[in-house]
Design a binder for these strands. Structure first.
Lengths: 202, 202
DNA sequence: GACAATATGGAGCAAATGCTACATATCAGC
DNA sequence: GCTGATATGTAGCATTTGCTCCATATTGTC
């Protein structure tokens, strides 16, 4: 028995995560958020709380899509293709983004992490999810015989995670195709996986 | 024919880079800088200009030490030991830093980069220096026969750079020894280099 | 010692920031 | 239609921010 919301929460979270993604937490003002979401400051406060909680919601919204991507790859591709596809997708998005936003997870990991235990925990947990995705795909591929059993799934997954994060850092400063693809190709070859398909430019 | 400065410029840059390193550019206020350097705002303004230029000076100061480290490794170690030593040093510092500051270069790459072409250029150039360090060491090691010639120095260097940056990201959120060492060990093994020495904990 | 030149410190300005009253508008239930 | 309850919008508060006067202090040169 009350007035219903006029805005679409998903659309607002989309807009909010884009602002935070592009500018970071500190460099985003509540007025930026207000302008980009179309909500007034008081509506934001009433619906999402303060800036900190709004960031948390926006980050969770972003991470939800990342998890969907991993789930889709896991369910529709072979273990090796899931890993290769994850990197292909990452590189293509990195090269195709004119704003060079990189990855909101990585950006947040470096900016909003040590000061804030809650953020740090959420980000660490998400990094573990990615690590687990890699490890399980590697182990499964090794069982199938698609992936070389020369390396332990644990360490190989750690290496993939590090390379992925490194690519995301490079994408924000030097979005150059040979650099990103070169960094990844060696790692995939290590596992006996086929090389990346050559698609986008720069 | 004027009053000399009372502060040591290097000491001030040390203090300034520590604040920026730990908190980032946006989250560091000029009053933080003033408190940690011991200089008044007016002295900072007179000696270093505005906050932006102060950050640039602090970053250059930090990067200078990074370059010194690379030069020392290049001049005193074999190519393979230089690469291994670089990673060992990075991991040890990452695990030993209670503030989990990670690497100021990487932090700056993600926070202060796309908005500011000058910062972005400086950071990109520094990343190329590291890449070149790896590539030259790999090529030299291959000439000597210490490093496996199975991979091109170009792509191997790109991979090492990505792993290094990834480790720096992980260090800020999940400073766990098995994780960081596992990520690196695979990459070094790829080149036929000896594994990391096990030293620090966590 | 007088003077020019630079460094320093206190005080504070103009703007931006995060956030919030408070009045108004819009709904469900009776 | 009235009432309670929630959403929205305007305006603005209190604080912080980056930065700068301006008076004072300290030097080298003559």
């Amino acid at each position: 028995m009350a007035r219903p919301r006029e805005f679409d929460e998903q659309a607002v979270l989309d807009a909010a995560s884009e602002v935070f993604w592009a500018n970071g937490y500190e460099a985003t003002s509540t007025r930026d958020l207000s302008a980009r979401t179309g909500l007034t400051p008081s509506s934001i406060c009433a619906a999402f709380g303060d800036k900190r909680r709004m960031f948390r919601r926006a980050l969770d919204h972003y991470l939800g899509r990342l998890r969907e991507k991993m789930t889709a790859l896991k369910e529709t591709r072979s273990p090796g293709e899931a890993i290769t596809g994850f990197f292909e997708d990452t590189i293509e998005r990195s090269l195709g983004d004119a704003l060079q936003r990189g990855c909101m997870l990585v950006n947040s990991a470096l900016e909003a992490s040590p000061q804030d235990p809650e953020f740090r925990g959420a980000i660490a947990a998400e990094l573990e999810l990615i690590e687990n995705f890699f490890r399980e795909r590697i182990a499964e591929g090794q069982r199938r015989g698609d992936i070389s059993p020369a390396h332990s799934p644990e360490d190989a997954a750690r290496q993939l995670l590090a390379v992925l994060l490194g690519v995301r850092v490079l994408a924000r400063v030097r979005p150059e195709s040979p650099l990103l693809r070169g960094a990844v190709s060696q790692t995939l070859a290590l596992l006996g996986l086929p090389p990346l398909a050559v698609t986008a430019g720069t």
